[in-house]
């Protein structure tokens, strides 16, 4: 049974090929066309294994661009997919924190990968990867390097939740001569605060798995653990949770069809 999960995020497109339990993956930037990046990731993934679309039994698309990918069998929201993927990556996960490029979500599950409740950030960019990206630009850094910058630093106070105002705050902190690593620590704390508050309202998780692109940032992970007073689990494939979940749900669909 060959299934594929494609997670078209606002920044990155992730594709996962599942052959039974064997997993292959890739991630490429989404750019300005979710349709093109979805198609490209799919083709590259298949080419690498010498496969064609006809060889694949079921494809599920997820992420904000899920509907714009033409070749999928079904679209499923990233909430359902992340829950399933996180359960696969970390057995017994009952809370998923997914921070992506343009939104953040907290998902409660039944411990078996099924969603029981969820919360999602509102219209604004606070508590998302976009927030980190804007701050990284203001600091003249690359967003992928931010995580290593804040280690051991005393966080500067970033009080504005609004991305635009927080950027001005960062610029004025720089002007005051505050150390860059303190500012970065403050930025991480701000994102973690926002997401932890959302998680707190939703319920208590005993096994919390952190997924999405921002899970690669150790600083945010560290402050999430501090804010929530619990361990935050990140695995090397955390950023692929959505695509993995989609490929697993595709397997479920096939099994349900056969039985």
């Amino acid at each position: 049974m060959l299934t594929v999960g494609i997670d078209v995020g606002s920044i990155m497109t992730k594709a996962v090929l599942l052959n039974g339990t064997e997993l292959k993956s890739l991630a490429i930037p989404t750019g300005c066309s979710p349709r093109d990046s979805g198609t490209k990731s799919f083709e590259e993934l298949l080419n690498a294994s010498g496969l064609t679309r006809e060889d694949i039994d079921y494809v599920i698309g997820t992420g904000y661009g899920r509907i714009s990918v033409p070749f999928i069998d079904k679209a499923v929201t990233e909430i359902t997919c992340h829950a399933r993927g996180a359960h696969y990556l970390v057995d017994g996960t009952d809370m998923v924190i997914d921070i992506g490029g343009q939104d953040s979500k907290v998902i409660l599950t039944d411990g078996k990968g099924n969603v029981t409740n969820f919360a999602m950030n509102d219209k604004c960019a606070a508590g998302t990867g976009r927030f980190l990206q804007v701050m990284a630009a203001a600091l003249g850094s690359d967003v992928s390097k931010l995580g290593d910058l804040s280690h051991g630093a005393e966080p500067a106070q970033i009080s504005s939740m609004c991305t635009v105002f927080a950027e001005s705050e960062v610029i004025s902190l720089l002007a005051q001569g505050v150390a860059k690593k303190s500012i970065v620590a403050g930025i991480h704390k701000s994102v973690a605060n926002r997401v932890a508050a959302m998680a707190e309202r939703l319920g208590k998780g005993s096994r919390i798995t952190f997924t999405g692109g921002v899970s690669k940032n150790d600083g945010v992970k560290e402050y999430l653990a501090r804010e929530m007073g619990r361990e935050i689990i990140v695995v090397p494939q955390s950023h692929l949770a959505g695509a993995i979940g989609a490929a697993l749900l595709a397997q479920d669909r096939l099994r349900a069809k056969k039985s």
Binding site: I79, T80, D103, N117, F118
Partner: peptide
């Protein structure tokens, strides 16, 4: 679009 994601996820639940 945001609402659609929430609502779809709710229906999936």
């Amino acid at each position: 679009e945001q609402l659609k994601t929430r609502i779809s996820a709710f229906i999936e639940m």
